[in-house]
Amino acid sequence: MKQPGAPTDLMSAEGISALASGVLAGRKASVAKALNLVEDRRDGSRRAVGALLRLLREQSDGSSHRVGLTGPPGVGKSTLAAALARTLRERGRSVGVVAVDPSSVRSGGSLLGDRARMGFDPSDEKVFVRSLATGGEAGGLSWAAPAAAQVLAAAYEVVLLETTGVGQTETDVRYVADTVVLVVQPGSGDVLQFLKAGIMEIPDLLVVNKADTGVLAERATSDLRSALASAQSAGLGEAMPILATSATERRGLDELADALDAQRASATDLAAHRRRGEVAWTLQLFRRLHGRHGVETLGGDAALEAAIDEALDADAPPTICAHLSERYLATVGRRESPGAKATKETQP
């Protein structure tokens, strides 16, 4: 295995080490540069990213809280993320935000419009917002989102990760976030649909946003409570806190911030959870490169997961993926074109 901070063709070991120090110190220019790096798709970047993430993991205390905000389009996730970030700032916490928006299937381009409505103070050194495009990934996240979340987690106390809101396939956020918040709006039948689609196992918290209209919002919340109760008695889902917020009227945000703190405090298996997330992420990275054939060649899902889990002691996912890639290519004895996407598969 390579040493941490090993030189790559993209960056020197010293460069990566300096970058990591900048990120840990919360310097915006460094955080921005690190995010540019983790978004880099060139083959040569994988080891640099791996080295950087490993340094960040070693040198930070892992105390940052990674919160995923998911839910269908139009429920006001961006506005909620902005309002929540503001509440957290008022409590003196530093906040990093990753907002993911879909890419156009036709052009590959995207419009990342969320930022405009967040309206943060540009001179505030303790809030950082990065928009990412899905780049054609399913699962509601960008392929760079897991690494981006790790970078931000090294620099800020709370990381908010907002998914695209494609709805029923947003399961990826589970392995990136410590706490998943499902956001719905009053009067929508979303929750029951999610239960049926098997999404309801995900959230740790349920938020009814746009609860701007007192009585109606209360009714929506109580409707949800009873729907949830009947679903639970049928064996679906677990009990979870339900909160009502109004991002535009700034209501319910303190309660949400408290609930998130409570979740974080009561999480007993956080390290194991993050480890499982990194295994899943590594496997997905590998599968994107080499498809089902790659997984089968290296012994199938279970064997690969075990190998990855072991490798995580020493390395970060992008580096492990690079090693697995080498192993695979040596096994099949031929070189694939770099970054081949023809065999790309998506997570179930």
């Binding site: 890419s103 052009s107 590959g108 381009g109 995207s110 419009l111 990342l112 419009g113 930022r115 409505r117």
Partner: peptide, 15 residues
């Protein structure tokens, strides 16, 4: 902003 997306840019539209 719209046109830039349509030719393939990732566009941060700030309003």
């Amino acid at each position: 902003a719209l046109k830039a997306r349509d030719v393939g840019f990732d566009v941060v539209y700030e309003g």
